[in-house]
Write a protein that binds this DNA or RNA. Structure first.
Length: 226
DNA sequence: GGCCAGGACACCA
DNA sequence: TGGTGTCATGGC
């Protein structure tokens, strides 16, 4: 008997989860660091973003106050390893100044808004798009908000699931209606999709364009083998 | 030396 | 609404 969409997405999650194990995202010591990391990793390898985060920590800059006060030029040099450093410096300062203006350094209070209001507020900040806002809500505010990235759309499209278009909100609605709204499940699901795609890409470049679970002909570490 | 990475935005048709 | 160019470093 064929599985319905809800069961298919759950089945895929279980399959990936069993294969890759618990991911425990997001790697950060504070929620504010998590949010800054979300900007630094935009279209960037996490390793590079992490170097920029380390530089920020070394300069005691991981607080809204300090990032609000530092000049954009100085900040851009500190986060240089992350790439796109001038535009990211503007985005980080925009977030820090926005939070600082109402909450000073109490970022956790800022995150305690109702999640829909928080999302709308985050999206009003220049440089924070839907994916970054949802990452902050899921991993920072710890509210069940599914993150839709390019990997997710490509993987599910290739498997014949999800909307036929690339509209973010439609994809998010698809996951919200097929995956139980549990923060820990959404957290792991997103992390595991990334882990899966990175693992396939690393071992088998050919899989970079297919991302198929059962059609990875050249990779040794496919889900069909486990 | 080329390709890619845990996006967002401005601009144009 | 959808497609394209731009922003840039570091690892493989």
């Amino acid at each position: 008997m064929p599985l319905n969409q809800e069961n298919q997405t759950s089945a895929l999650f279980n399959k990936l989860s069993n294969h890759y194990g618990k991911q425990n995202w997001w790697p950060a010591t504070t929620k504010f660091e998590m949010a800054i990391g979300a900007i630094l990793t935009q279209s960037t390898n996490w390793n590079n973003a992490n170097k920029a985060l380390a530089n920020l920590a070394d300069n005691d800059l991981l607080s809204p106050t300090h990032l609000h006060q530092i000049s954009r030029d100085r900040l851009s040099q500190i986060i240089r390893p992350s790439g796109y450093y001038t535009i990211k410096a503007s985005r980080i300062k925009a977030l820090a100044s926005h939070v600082y203006s109402s909450y000073q350094d109490d970022f956790e209070s800022y995150l305690r808004q109702p999640k829909e209001a928080l999302r709308e507020d985050l999206l009003s900040i220049k440089g924070i798009g839907k994916e970054t806002a949802d990452a902050i809500i899921l991993y920072g505010a710890e509210e069940a908000m599914f993150i839709v990235d390019e990997y997710t759309k490509r993987l599910f499209s290739r498997l014949g699931h999800g909307p036929l278009n690339k509209v973010y909100d439609e994809w998010q609605d698809f996951f919200h209606s097929t995956v139980p709204k549990i923060t820990s499940v959404y957290s792991e699901y997103h992390a595991i999709i990334v882990a899966h795609c990175k693992a396939l890409c690393k071992k088998t470049p050919a899989c970079h364009t297919c991302f198929l679970i059962n059609e990875c002909k050249t990779g040794k570490e496919t889900l069909t083998s486990c």
